[in-house]
Design a protein around this nucleic acid. Structure first.
Lengths: 293, 293
DNA sequence: CGCTTCGTTCACTGACACTGAACGATCGCC
DNA sequence: GGCGATCGTTCAGTGTCAGTGAACGAAGCG
């Protein structure tokens, strides 16, 4: 059992793209292809259904990804803890982020923490797109930087740290693609991609509102469990997606156009378990408020 | 993060011996040494306190081992499940064993299962010495071949499958070492190694009885969490240990003598969760009863 | 004070991790 | 429908590093 194969599999399972996976692993595309093939040979069945244009997980692949991911994260956390306690650090703070923008902010805050609170080690990891709060609840994360609104009785939220405009991601052939700006009212009749899993209804309604302000219906399209998956569907003309503005820079896709949306912006802030607001969490929240601006 | 390093670390953490670890990993001792050193360099502190005669986990090492082990097992299980379901197998049975003797029996039964019940995949793994039933309860195992007695209200046990004599493992300088046989009465005043964790009291009393038949006290020595650890202590003259007879063949140690014990033998049988006696468990129990003899 | 059993060091080598270039496929587009 | 772009795969080549065996020092034992 080779770690490279598993790492590669898990990255590809979220990126669904050999090129980007190769970039993230700092390898050539050829090598990524070989690693995935070797893992598939070991398992004895394909984990990805792929053409030269599209990569998707098979049922078996999805299952394996779900089985593997928590343990892979657990091993990373165990190593981080060991390294931290070898340095004489007594507290390890696991911080989650949800997209490239929040990722950058969290990295910046973590760097600042090293100077201000050297006794707290900050470990950073991406929050799976599916259930936004599950891992935080389970204790896999201590804090995470998430898009508001967050209305969970067992979670506390800090002030807004970031804010950005929203956009509508549509296929470039879509009638709205040429517009300089769209309003929520324009979304009437435009199928917005839905979310797998069971996200809280207020969360779902914020990211894929069911009606326009005037009450006209906004239908819901296919459900996705992954941002890359969503973009692939948008690129295939299978639905539209409300996404934060930074996606245009971080996730350019040939067939996807991001049209500015005239609506309230997305706010981001830190969230933690209501009971567990310890010194390290407060220190991080403090640092983040001062650094992210 | 290299898998070899972690595998090597975990094996060494239970074997506490570079030579045996090398054997199990099918590598040279030199390589094992290098792998452990690289992991320690990565962590930034020693994981083992070792002289040329003795290997022991540091506190940090023990912690890392406890953190890592469940995830390592989880990954193996995930791969096994994927491989099994790629073969069209719909049921995976996780079988545990507790020592080399039961290990061989389980392997034999598993091989027989392949012929009798090809739709059930049998996965085999060693049960950690510490808490004998924890992993079975957690569902990490479905069945395990364990030494009786087992008196747990939530676990069911099958008939006795194996039985073997017991021995007393003592330092070769010990007064009892020269005897051709010892009785439980002879143990009066002989410190028997105790067990870490919180084993059930009937279990503890069977493996390290507190009194002789006539009522004289058998003191308890240092607590160990591991058979290798126990043998190391016995080899250092730090206590004696009641062990099954096969240990003499499978765990010879320069300073340790195994003296036959005139007492009831150890019985072994299968144990499973009382509620979960499904078709696969019954099939395995059946096969084991016929094959192991 | 030899003898044995360990873990470690070190120079060496063969396997294989990894690459770049070429290739075939699948799109969109004029 | 042909052209260009994008993407995953194949393949031969190469540099690296995983892994070894031999030598060594430390530690215990008699």
């Amino acid at each position: 059992m080779d770690c490279d194969e598993l790492d590669c599999f898990l990255i590809l399972a979220t990126e669904l793209h050999f090129g980007r996976t190769a970039e993230r692993m700092r390898l050539s595309r050829a090598r990524v292809s070989q690693l995935v093939q070797r893992l598939e040979r070991r398992v004895g069945a394909p984990l990805f259904a792929r053409t030269s244009r599209r990569v998707a997980l098979t049922t078996l692949g999805r299952r394996l990804r779900d089985d593997l991911e928590p343990h892979q994260r657990g091993i990373k956390a165990a190593m981080a803890r060991a390294i931290a306690s070898a340095k004489g650090i007594d507290e390890v703070l696991l911080v989650g982020f949800t997209n490239p923008l929040t990722g950058e902010a969290v990295v910046k805050a973590a760097e600042a923490m090293r100077g201000r609170h050297p006794d707290v080690a900050v470990e950073i990891c991406e929050v799976p797109f599916n259930d936004p709060f599950g891992l935080l609840r389970q204790g896999e994360f201590d804090v995470q930087l998430t898009a508001f609104p967050v209305r969970e009785s067992d979670l506390d939220a800090g002030p807004v740290l970031l804010s950005e405009k929203r956009t509508l991601a549509v296929h470039k052939g879509h009638p709205l693609a040429g517009r300089g700006e769209v309003t929520v009212e324009d979304l009437a009749g435009v199928a917005l991609l839905d979310f797998e899993g069971e996200p809280p209804s207020y969360w779902r309604d914020f990211h894929a509102p069911p009606r326009t302000p005037s009450g006209r219906e906004i239908p819901r399209g296919a459900a996705v469990g992954n941002f890359q998956e969503a973009l692939t569907l948008v690129g295939a003309g299978k639905g539209a997606l409300l996404s934060p503005a930074h996606a245009a820079d971080y996730h350019p896709r040939p067939n996807v156009v991001y049209v500015p949306l005239a609506a309230e912006p997305v706010d981001y802030g830190l969230v933690w378990r209501a009971g567990d607001e310890n010194r390290a969490v407060r220190a991080f929240a403090d640092t983040a408020r001062k650094v992210v601006a």
